[in-house]
């Protein structure tokens, strides 16, 4: 998930944060309704279109996806071998391709592989959708969303500062790693104990630095009047516009349609 806000003025940018959150929820439901990879592919394609619309930074996105490839492959393999034929409704899905072990054990089912593909597409779809959401929503809007949802202000403040400090802490981490490398720390010791031990020189300064930073952050916040009242001036009042109502209706229609297709027509299952 990319967290920085991407300035722009598309419809998605202008939508109310509550509409976007609702849309995101709708997308999640949609993606969990269907098991058939074809349907998932359609969903991913649609979110992909949204992503293109807001001009998602493709390279950064790829940087995020590429390390996941081994996980993707292992998920497909896992589901392929672990889902028994009896789990599937359709005959074609129940077909066993081959057995991994002698004596007809650990069979690879067609349905299993398809299910694996669905999982992957679901993951991808969610990554795209959440990226679209975060890229088009400012932190302030998120805070206001929390406020509207009656989340205590302390918690929303905590979350927003946590997000603000991710890049700062990441920089700290890099500096610590370099400082320790320069003292000859090796990060490839064998075994679980070894690897934990080799990360202590990183973790301890990291904790200490975080605590020091938190300390001076709390001072800085008090210095600037935080905590005097439990509320604060909202930068932009949230208000539903016609486009929000339109979008919400669209999501509702889509969801109803999907539920009809899935449960009445019984499509999209494996």
């Amino acid at each position: 998930m990319l967290i920085e806000y991407l300035a722009g003025d598309t419809l998605i940018h202008r939508l109310d944060v509550r509409t976007k959150m609702f849309g995101f929820l709708g997308f999640m439901i949609l993606s969990f309704l269907f098991e058939d990879p074809i349907y998932q592919l359609i969903i991913v394609f649609c979110t992909g279109l949204l992503a293109f619309w807001i001009k998602i930074p493709l390279r950064k996105f790829m940087v995020m996806v590429v390390p996941l490839i081994p996980i993707i492959i292992s998920i497909i393999l896992m589901t392929g071998f672990t889902f028994s034929p009896g789990r599937f409704d359709r005959i074609s899905s129940q077909a066993v391709l081959f057995y991994a072990l002698p004596g007809d054990r650990l069979g690879a089912t067609v349905g299993g592989f398809l299910m694996g593909t669905t999982f992957i597409l679901r993951l991808l779809g969610m990554m795209i959708a959440s990226t679209v959401l975060t890229l088009t929503t400012t932190m302030d809007e998120v805070t206001q969303f929390f406020q509207k949802m009656k989340v205590p202000p302390e918690i929303s403040m905590m979350l927003t500062t946590a997000i603000r400090f991710i890049p700062t802490l990441d920089k700290k981490r890099r500096q610590i790693v370099e400082a320790q490398k320069a003292r000859g720390t090796k990060f490839n010791e064998k075994g679980i104990i070894g690897s934990i031990r080799s990360y202590l020189p990183i973790m301890i300064p990291m904790f200490i630095n975080s605590i020091l930073m938190a300390n001076s952050l709390s001072m800085a916040m008090l210095n600037r009047g935080y905590g005097l009242t439990r509320t604060w001036t909202s930068v932009r009042e949230l208000s539903f516009e016609p486009r929000d109502y339109g979008t919400i209706s669209l999501v509702v229609i889509l969801l109803t349609l999907a539920i009809f297709v899935r449960f009445k027509l019984n499509l999209g299952v494996l």
């Binding site: 700290k172 003292r183 202590l200 200490i208």
Partner: peptide, 10 residues
């Protein structure tokens, strides 16, 4: 030797 000693003391 890096600038900030707190990055290495543990």
């Amino acid at each position: 030797v890096f600038q900030n000693p707190d990055h290495q003391i543990f």
